[in-house]
């Protein structure tokens, strides 16, 4: 790995101590404003994170791959587009709205959440529908926690998620090619959303999310294919009808509403029985491993789908 060397200032560039100290006094009053301005910058912020449950004995994929190989069509269709075309995106300040069929609609200040000590680390497997996989150390809070605070109505059965639309900051949204109608939308059944595995992530590797990974807040549903993990979420709405989801709208015969990881149900164009493991540095060193039912989270989620035909409800 490359070592970053800080540029050393010339002795002539260093401010003399007395001048520095006199400036400190002036700044005393303006310090609050300065902190607020810095909070809006895109630089990664260290999080006060503590280990959460379900992490198991998994070795995370090298960070350079997790932050350099992304599907985030808002920034372009190639895997390296998100990392190279997302620097104009300014995630903070950000308010996440939770509404619809709830008793107490919420407005969550994500900037404040980033500073809270509620954030836990969950090391999860990530299985992409394209038959590759990673292991990612997420930092976030269980979605159930937020939904409980909003007090869903008893008639609410589904949770609909909506991402951000900012064509000026997201070049993929102004491209005529993808055929996707923005915003990106996703959905879960309410019981799936309330499952303790379901996470709203605000960070990876102990730092706030980079833009290309869905800053400032995104969904992580480890037993489903990666595209269910909607990024840069702006609105969450509880509803009694199954909400439309972006990839299902685009190709309903290829991507279902459930999109549970299932080695027995193949994609029309490729097998889902096994997966390429991201993280090898060489072409001939790439490994392939069997895909696990519900991506290895069968114990936690199999009950959600008892008696359901998983071939029809793919």
């Amino acid at each position: 790995m490359a070592i970053f060397r800080y540029p050393r200032p010339m002795p002539s560039d260093i401010t003399p101590k007395d001048v520095y100290l006199s400036r400190r006094e002036l700044l005393g009053t303006g310090a609050l404003g300065l902190t607020a301005a810095l909070a809006g910058s895109a630089r990664a912020e260290a999080l006060k994170t503590h280990p959460g449950p379900y992490s198991g004995r998994l070795t995370p994929t090298p960070e350079e791959f997790v932050t350099g190989y992304n599907n985030f069509y808002e920034f372009g269709m190639e895997k390296d587009d998100p990392v190279s075309h997302s620097s104009d995106f300014h995630p903070l300040p950000w308010t996440l709205e939770i509404g619809g069929m709830v008793k107490k609609p919420q407005r969550l200040d994500v900037g404040a959440l980033l500073k809270s000590s509620d954030i836990e680390e969950r090391i999860y497997r990530m299985r992409c529908v394209e038959a590759w996989s990673m292991v990612i150390p997420w930092d976030g809070i269980p979605l159930a926690k937020l939904l409980q605070a909003a007090e869903p109505d008893s008639a609410a059965k589904y949770v609909a998620f909506e991402s951000v639309v900012r064509p000026s900051e997201m070049p993929g949204q102004s491209s005529a090619f993808s055929g996707i109608s923005w915003p990106y939308v996703e959905g879960l059944r309410l019981d799936e959303a309330m499952n303790p595995l379901t996470l709203l992530a605000v960070g990876i590797y102990g730092e706030s999310l980079p833009n290309q990974n869905g800053a400032p807040i995104r969904l992580v549903v480890p037993w489903k294919y990666g595209f269910k993990g909607i990024k840069s979420i702006q609105r969450i709405r509880l509803t009694d009808k199954q909400p439309p989801t972006t990839w299902n709208r685009l190709a309903p015969e290829e991507y279902g509403f459930y999109a549970n990881v299932n080695p027995q149900v193949d994609h029309p164009r490729w097998s889902q029985a096994s997966e390429r493991v991201i993280g090898s540095k060489t072409l001939f060193g790439t490994k392939r491993q069997p895909t696990l039912m519900f991506n290895g989270y069968e114990e936690q989620v199999a009950d959600l789908y008892r008696g359901m035909n998983l071939h029809d409800n793919f």
Partner: peptide, 18 residues
């Protein structure tokens, strides 16, 4: 392509790019 693949030039998923 082979040379790049063996030297990290094809990115995170070298087999797919190859």
């Amino acid at each position: 392509l082979v040379w790049q693949g063996q030297n990290g030039g094809l990115g995170a998923d070298p087999v797919n790019v190859f």
